[in-house]
């Protein structure tokens, strides 16, 4: 009878309330832990600092040269010095370009004229990947993208390099 119907709806009502209260408890319990867990995702990466790489701008020629420097890396509670390197040269428009030496194929390290068979090119020894002088990958070799470039700045005649970003032209 209608009595029975009422019983069902009352049970359903209780079930909804139970879900609500359970949801409230779960939310109260989890909101802080989850916010803490996803904190690294939400932390803004504010550009990063430029580091002096110890190379005078006047010394940069149209021939790529390798520079090595170290940066202070803060990884959470752990601070350490990390080695970085770049290939720096002046392009035909007299602009300074600093390439990251990390091959876009599988992450090996490329070097300028690293193979005698390929002069005037960057060469990756792992899978014979090659790039032209302007960083663009040679078609037909394994890499599919040009080399990444460093953000760069000139201060007091010295070269400062910052974050790595993708090669724009090409």
């Amino acid at each position: 009878m209608s009595d029975e119907k009422q019983q069902v709806s009352r049970r359903q009502f209780l079930n909804y309330t139970l879900t609500g209260v359970g949801g409230f408890m779960a939310a109260g319990l989890l909101i802080s832990p989850v916010r803490m867990a996803i904190d690294p995702v939400l932390k803004s990466n504010d550009g990063g600092d430029f580091a002096n790489v110890g190379l005078e701008v006047s010394e940069i020629t149209s021939d790529p040269q390798r520079v090595d420097w170290t940066i202070d890396q803060v990884d959470g509670w752990y601070e350490s010095e990390v080695n970085r390197s770049a290939w720096v040269y002046r392009n035909e428009n007299d602009e300074i370009v600093a390439f990251s030496p990390v091959c876009k194929h599988l992450g090996c390290v490329v070097s300028w004229e690293g193979n005698d068979d390929y002069p005037e090119q960057y060469y990756c020894p792992c899978h014979d990947g090659r790039y032209y002088k302007n960083g663009v990958n040679v078609p037909g070799t394994p890499p599919l993208q040009p080399l990444d470039v460093y953000e760069q700045e000139e201060r007091d005649g010295m070269l400062f390099l910052g974050n790595i970003k993708p090669h724009e032209e090409a």
Partner: peptide, 9 residues
């Protein structure tokens, strides 16, 4: 379920 559990929760 659900009467008593609701009170507990």
């Amino acid at each position: 379920w659900p009467n008593f559990l609701l009170k507990e929760w």
